[in-house]
Nucleic acid binder design. Structure first.
Length: 163
DNA sequence: GCCAACGTTGGC
DNA sequence: GCCAACGTTGGC
């Protein structure tokens, strides 16, 4: 199901890059969920970087495959207070997940912390904002890695008190 | 290749 | 904490 749709999306992105007339691909924007008990944004700040392992859903994996170095990623804590807590940046494009069992084809990307949000953006806040009701976090609540359009990303960052 | 059974996630 | 939704696995 997903592969053809992914190819279409990829082509659309390439075309939009050409339209922008930039040689470098545009920065893409994403959101990734984590359970803070497993790995929190604070852990990422402490470590300096990490490989984002353990993603075991094909749609989420496809999204990670499309990430490029420099892409910006909102980090969302999915248990405890459900909220976006910080911004990370992709520091290495996809490569095999070191935690995968032999024969499995899962991949990871590396991310590093960019900025902690001054005020975490709660899921309830997002759901109370009409502009944000269509984002995958709300519409496709089980997806753990998802793309965000730049205006949405910017709006969320602004809600978090960072610029 | 279909579908029942099962496991996991998230809404309420 | 229950259950619906979704995804995966395995039997046929």
């Amino acid at each position: 199901m997903g592969q053809q749709a992914d190819r279409v999306k990829e082509r659309e992105r390439e075309e939009s890059n050409i339209k922008e007339g930039s040689k470098k691909p545009m920065i893409q924007y994403w959101l990734m969920k984590t359970e803070p008990g497993e790995y929190s944004y604070e852990d990422l700040e402490r470590d300096g970087w990490t490989h984002w392992d353990g993603v075991r859903n094909h749609q989420a994996q496809n999204n990670m495959k499309q990430m490029a170095v420099g892409d910006e990623v909102l980090i969302y804590h999915s248990v405890g207070p459900k909220e976006i807590v910080g911004i990370a940046q992709v520091s290495k494009r996809s490569y095999p997940d070191p935690t995968a069992k032999p024969g499995e084809k899962w991949i990871v990307v590396d991310v590093k912390p960019l900025k902690k949000l001054a005020t975490p953006v709660k899921l309830a806040q997002i759901k109370a904002t009409p502009d944000l009701l269509e984002i995958p976090l709300v519409k496709q609540s089980r997806l753990s890695v998802m793309p965000l359009e730049k205006p949405i990303f910017d709006q969320l960052v602004q809600m978090g008190g960072s610029h």
